[in-house]
Design a protein around this nucleic acid. Structure first.
Length: 190
DNA sequence: GATAAGATTAACT
DNA sequence: GTTAATCTTATCC
């Protein structure tokens, strides 16, 4: 498989569409490999009031001001981790939230991590995905070209992309920055 | 130093 | 449809 081309992530919105269909591969400490296909993303950039980078660089968001193609991971609502791919050139704070994915490999491990059986509930939301793949602050700033967390280009792009407004935010609610694969059953609801 | 809100989820009524 | 869970960060005294 071919690793992603990070130059495609310079523009957050284009990057969010580029990541659809890509394979996210997680190698766990004790051996098992989990892989999922990205089916839903949202883009955020520095002039966007809904972005964590809107008010400039801080210890929390510093990864997004670094090289594109790294992991920006944040903790929210006192209990959830969310996983993003950094975007934009160095010095410009942008990122792409991975909202949902389709389980491909290691579904048994994901079910164990999520403590549920239903395949359709394993990774159909940003915090669910992070929990299923055991993603937390230890992977903050991780270069996604290296194990234990990597992203590969898809074999083909035989799918249609739908563009809409984002979910679960209160600022810049009219911005079209959410993208998902049409008809995919693992796209989050709401 | 204190407080309010948050790129969510699951469990209720 | 509504709400609790639970804690970090940013913002404002």
């Amino acid at each position: 498989m071919k690793l992603i081309n990070t130059t495609k992530l310079i523009d957050a919105k284009e990057g969010a569409k580029y990541l659809l269909g890509c394979i996210l591969k997680r190698t766990l400490v004790d051996g098992p490999v989990v892989s999922v296909r990205i089916v839903e993303t949202e883009s955020y950039h520095q002039e966007d009031p809904a972005s964590h980078t809107f008010h400039g660089q801080s210890p929390r968001n510093s990864a997004m001001f670094g090289k594109p193609g790294h992991a920006y991971i944040y903790f929210t609502y006192g209990m959830h981790w969310c996983f993003n791919v950094t975007a934009g050139s160095v010095g410009y704070g942008a990122g792409i939230l991975i909202r949902a994915a389709e389980p491909l490999e290691g579904t048994d491990v994901m079910a164990q991590n999520r403590k549920i059986e239903d395949i359709h509930q394993l990774t159909n939301g940003p915090a669910k995905l992070a929990q299923a793949l055991l993603i937390d602050k230890t992977l903050y700033g991780h270069d996604l070209k290296n194990p234990p967390l990597q992203i590969f280009e898809p074999e083909n792009r035989n799918f249609k992309v739908v563009s809409t407004t984002r979910i679960g935010i209160s600022k810049a609610v009219d911005e079209i920055a959410r993208f998902y694969i049409e008809g995919n059953p693992f796209v989050s609801k709401k």
